[in-house]
Design a protein around this nucleic acid. Sequence first.
DNA 1: AACCAAGTCAACCGCTTACTA
DNA 2: TTAGTAAGCGGTTGACTTGGT
Length: 353
Amino acid sequence: MGRSPCCDENGLKKGPWTPEEDQILVDYIDKHGHGSWRALPKLAGLNRCGKSCRLRWTNYLRPDIKRGKFSEEEEQTILHLHSILGNKWSAIATHLSGRTDNEIKNFWNTHLKKKLIQMGYDPMTHKPRTDLFANLPNIIALANLLQHHPLEDHAVRLQVQAAQLAKIQYLQFLFQSSNNYNPTQPTPSSNTQHYNNNNNINLGDLGAFNLTNFVKENSTPSLNLSNIENQTLFSNENNSCSQLLHNNQDNTQQVPFNFQTHLNNNINEISDNINCHNFNFDQENNSTSSPLNITNILPSPHSSSHLPPLAEISISNNQGDSSSNSTNNGADQGSSSYWPELFFEEHFMHDIS
DNA sequence: AACCAAGTCAACCGCTTACTA
DNA sequence: TTAGTAAGCGGTTGACTTGGT
């Protein structure tokens, strides 16, 4: 497959278009249609490459282009379509008359993606983020709370805290997996596979596990984990943990179509879900009171493919939001990107297993 | 008023795909 | 079947704008 010659090889103009150039292009296409884009610039008398002309026309000069702010309805449509199609901007654009793929892409990158991240959702999978980095703000906040403590204590406490948050998230992951698993209903896209593989736990199996008690009782003396719990498990905004516990009915846990309203309305439902399952972790015996041997449902420490990636997007650079994510389900990533070894070495894991 | 950082968006780059000879 | 061309597409860049200090 050959590639088109680069447009600047012949000293053709690049950069922003002038109103005069726009007018020439519009006039020509009005009269003759665009025909061959490659031939158009010469025929129209423009010192531009055909590619540049095509982009200028399709992204800006086309008469049917709608300009201005995206409406709420358009925003919801983009979110919905993106959850299905991923970064297929042109496909999304076909459902929004008058909007170009470029415009939608820009709107996504500058508004919607940030919105999802702020709400604790992974903008690529539209799922609640399960990585530790999603809780970084909480950790930083905790660090601030500890500012009055001696520095050496500070570092140690932060490490302890990070490990505890990881524990909490792992438990939430188990809980989440138990709600997700449905062997008769495959996940709609490859993006979601690693969330559902082999975690065939059901709530009955974990039925006696009290997550909130666990959080409280495992708190270090120096940290008020009740506050963290309130912030991360039950607060309404910018919070990944509460969304982790959100019992989404369609088993996909994707950001719903009208996600904002949905999240706002369902915080009580989240709490209810936790309470109604009546978890009760038997700390003294270091085991669940369920007859199930939990070892059977825990992934092997060396079998990280059972676990969600720690950070699918949060630690990536700009390139990380590329569409390649849509074809990368994370399963082939190195194990280093999954739950850290130290987590499995924690006595907590030994306690459970 | 000047500076800086963050946000926005038009345009470009380069890869992929479809088509054709 | 192969290679060349054109067009489509998504990621990235950089100029410009805006808001804060």
